[in-house]
């Protein structure tokens, strides 16, 4: 007779408690299908049409597109590549953009991805401060964001 059967006869309450605890522990495992994560990545890939360099953290579309914008470059779906994440899950790599015209002199600190059609601020990240001068150009290196598997 197994230990559990012995406990069941000897003390049904203890056996029930052990069973419940086991189910609880088994229930802690988490997972997500890649398609779910790609759904988020594809929102950016299929809707982002502009990347801007900003002199402050934008929290709205208007701030990213105008108020804080120093330079901007047109983006298309081909500039975004989805792949397995470096750690886990899925990642979206944003292509480098070279010779981006600088429209306003200032110190750039943030990069924003914009959905111009729907006036949405999709993503914001930081970068090391860089002085930019109107009339010059800037190169924007490739970067990525990753959505890890749940843990």
């Amino acid at each position: 007779m197994s230990l559990f059967a012995t406990l069941l006869f000897a003390s049904p309450w203890i056996a029930a408690a052990i069973l419940s605890l086991s189910l609880l522990l088994l229930g802690m495992a988490k997972s997500v299908h890649d398609d779910v994560l790609d759904g988020a990545l594809n929102i950016v890939k299929n809707n982002c049409t502009r990347m801007t360099l900003c002199n402050a953290e934008p929290t709205t579309y208007t701030e990213a597109n105008a108020t804080f914008a120093l330079a901007d470059v047109t983006m298309a779906a081909g500039d975004f590549t989805a792949a397995n994440g470096d750690t886990s899950g899925r990642k979206l790599t944003i292509a480098a953009k070279n010779a981006v015209p600088v429209d306003t002199t200032g110190t750039s600190t943030h990069v924003a991805l914009l959905d111009v059609t729907n006036s949405k601020l999709l993503y914001v990240t930081t970068h090391t401060s860089q002085a930019l001068t109107s009339g010059n150009t800037a190169n924007i290196g490739s970067w990525k964001f990753e959505i890890a598997d749940p843990t």
Binding site: T126, Q130, L132, A138, I140, I147, A148
Partner: peptide, 16 residues
């Protein structure tokens, strides 16, 4: 030779 400083955006790691 036009000025083309490199701006390197920081990667983002999301977990859940």
């Amino acid at each position: 030779a036009a000025q083309k400083p490199l701006v390197q955006p920081a990667d983002i790691q999301l977990s859940h």
